[in-house]
């Protein structure tokens, strides 16, 4: 697991962009994670302003300009490390991408790769009550669009949709604060090395993100239909 610095032979932390002993840039390892890039544990409740400072500091150190007179492979590595760092920062700085990324590292398949090509079954994770709501709302949206095509506006329908929008936006805000609670639970489980509790937090985050994706799309569709 532990690799050695190509230059001085000191042991390297997993995925570290630099050798701490001699400061030389390292080749990105194949299994490096975005958490490794920042030397962070796989935890979720992280402070984004600290992350930002670490990002700028690393960016400056890794910038290809700094390596203009270094060996060719060091130039190449600084380029690769910089692009890795940018991806890592973009992913970790935002709540949802960070959570999705961690879940992916933990073996959860997200988005469209869940239904695999050989037709492997995924369980339907939507709670039935939400499905009913989603379906009803879509019916109303369709009616709204038809009306608009005919140049009509149904104030009752518009009012219903406004109400639905407020309700779903409330659900989004609620899911964000629920997610933060799950981060704390996850982080505590990681610290305690409690696998059962980790798995529980993981499953709850997956369910929450599934629901959130649905609601977010609904809000977007309602906004479109309302011409907002």
């Amino acid at each position: 697991m532990s690799a050695a610095c190509w230059s001085c032979g000191s042991a390297l932390a997993a995925g570290a962009p630099f050798c701490v002993a001699c400061g030389k840039v390292q080749a990105p390892t194949a299994d490096v994670t975005y958490f490794d890039v920042f030397g962070l544990p796989r935890k979720l409740a992280l402070d984004t302003s600290t992350l930002e400072r670490a990002f700028y500091k690393l960016s400056r150190k890794l910038h290809p300009d700094v390596y203009a007179r270094a060996s060719e492979r060091e130039q190449q590595w600084s380029l690769e490390q910089t692009s890795l760092l940018n991806d890592a920062y973009r992913t970790l700085k935002n709540a949802i991408p960070r959570t999705e990324y961690l879940l992916k590292l933990e073996g959860v398949e997200i988005e469209q790769d869940r239904a695999s090509e050989n037709g492997a079954k995924k369980e339907s994770r939507m709670p039935p009550d939400l499905l009913e709501e989603v379906f009803e709302l879509n019916m109303q949206l369709e009616e709204m669009r038809m009306n608009q095509k005919m140049g009509e506006d149904d104030p009752q329908l518009r009012g219903d949709l406004e109400k639905a929008k407020t309700q779903f936006e409330g659900q989004l805000a609620e899911s964000d604060s629920d997610l933060q609670k799950l981060w704390v639970k996850w982080d505590a489980a990681v610290d305690a090395d409690d696998e059962a509790s980790q798995a529980d937090a993981k499953n709850k985050m997956v369910a929450l993100l599934d629901r959130r994706r649905y609601v977010r799309n609904l809000v977007r569709d309602v906004n479109e239909a309302l011409g907002a």
Binding site: I110, E111, Q112, R114, S124, R125, M126, P128, L130, L131, E132, V134, F135, N138, D210, R211, R213, Y214, N217, L218, D221
Partner: peptide, 13 residues
């Protein structure tokens, strides 16, 4: 049967 795909927001009855 009412089913949905959270990935894309599709819902099918």
């Amino acid at each position: 049967g009412l089913v949905g795909a959270p990935e894309c927001g599709d819902v099918m009855r």
